[in-house]
Design a protein around this nucleic acid. Structure first.
Lengths: 209, 209
DNA sequence: ATTTTAAGCTAACGGTTATTAGCTGTCAAG
DNA sequence: CTTGACAGCTAATAACCGTTAGCTTAAAAT
């Protein structure tokens, strides 16, 4: 009556280990020990070490797609709920930013998987492409669309919404990378994010004329 | 009459290999082959694999310090050359940004070493601290001081100069990380940087009243 | 001219790696 | 009650790892 099947626990523990040491530096014996079995028993569930890694990859990718899907669901559906956005104030933007940051930093699987991608991106072209897609291209294009709508609704001054997304997202990206490796600096980063969004908001707000 | 001594070639080739595969994934035999000698001969120059790595570390750190030193030299020395900054226009800012980006991306040692730090930062606290210092804290504080001076000189609207530095630097940081793994996207990134700085400049410029 | 030092080599070592073979117990299906 | 699949184990394998020992050769120092 375990919470998780052995097969699932293997990828959970392997993910943790890969995230902090990198694929090559983790032995199957270490994974097995973390799971609580002996190394050869792993091969009853996965036929190789590489196979464990690809299992992690597909699992995490499907989680990501699912999450993005649910975001798009109550996200941008142009025409509906427009007024919900148009009165998005500074405080709401700060809340959104902080929550996004906190989620990316503390959600166990998201965080671990990003570390794996960070560490392995140069060894495998597929991983590099995945990193770019998940942590650069898709956030930027999503937020770009969002800001375009808000701009159209008159909430911000007319500027390039994609550059605006870059201005909004990049500082959070940088602070995320910082905190990933230096968790003790999270409060400082959180404060920086608040200041960032406040200033961002002032810069892009429509002046009363 | 070789350009580089064997001892130097070892760290050059080792750096390249570490940058693309990570420390653990590279064997001393691979390093030796890249240099053109046999594995045991490496030990005439360095007493262990770890020793090669630390040699890379100290070499690259000293290069970095030297470079920062020369930047500070003709950089911020408050009181001197103030008028040189105060008439820094948009085009100059774009040029500076592009050159900085291009240097970080194409300078062989800088680029390779950042990849090594990216990949190894989680395994070694020292490397993590070095990464944070070199690629986050110091650029931000340097540019923060710079913008503070420019602001004081009346070139920009009064805002928090450190947040301003974050707004200027973070987008370039993000695009750098992107291009590091996807060199084919450099033109796109370069164009994005130009748009970024132009918009940044518009946002922070002092309006004529 | 002789000695010493440096830098390469081959051979070999002990340790670790991922993986396989084959055995044992458990538990559900027939 | 038997059978068979499953999931664990120990033992063993071949390959590779970083590293050492010891030899050779060439250049530098004495």
């Amino acid at each position: 009556m375990e919470r998780q099947s052995t097969k699932d626990r293997i990828i959970t523990e392997a993910l943790k280990l890969f995230a902090e040491k990198g694929y090559e530096a983790v032995s199957v014996a270490q994974i097995a020990e973390a799971v609580g079995i002996k190394a050869p028993s792993l091969y009853k569930h996965y036929k190789s070490k590489q196979n464990i890694f690809t299992a992690i990859l597909t699992e995490m990718s499907s989680r990501y797609e699912k999450q993005v899907g649910s975001m798009r669901m109550n996200g941008i559906t142009p025409g509906a709920d427009m007024e919900l956005f148009s009165n998005m104030g500074e405080e709401q933007l700060i809340d959104m930013g902080k929550q996004l940051f906190s989620f990316f930093l503390h959600d166990e699987y998201t965080s671990l998987f990003r570390r794996v991608l960070t560490v392995e991106q140069y060894r495998d072209k597929k991983l590099g492409a995945l990193y770019a897609k998940q942590y650069v291209d898709e956030p930027l294009s999503y937020q770009g669309e969002l800001f375009a709508l808000l701009m159209q609704a008159g909430a911000f001054i007319p500027e390039n919404p994609n550059v605006m997304a870059l201005h909004f997202f990049a500082p959070m990206f940088l602070l995320l990378i910082l905190c990933e490796c230096h968790p003790e600096r999270e409060p400082e980063a959180m404060q920086m994010i608040e200041q960032h969004i406040r200033q961002f908001s002032r810069l892009y707000e429509k002046k009363v004329s």
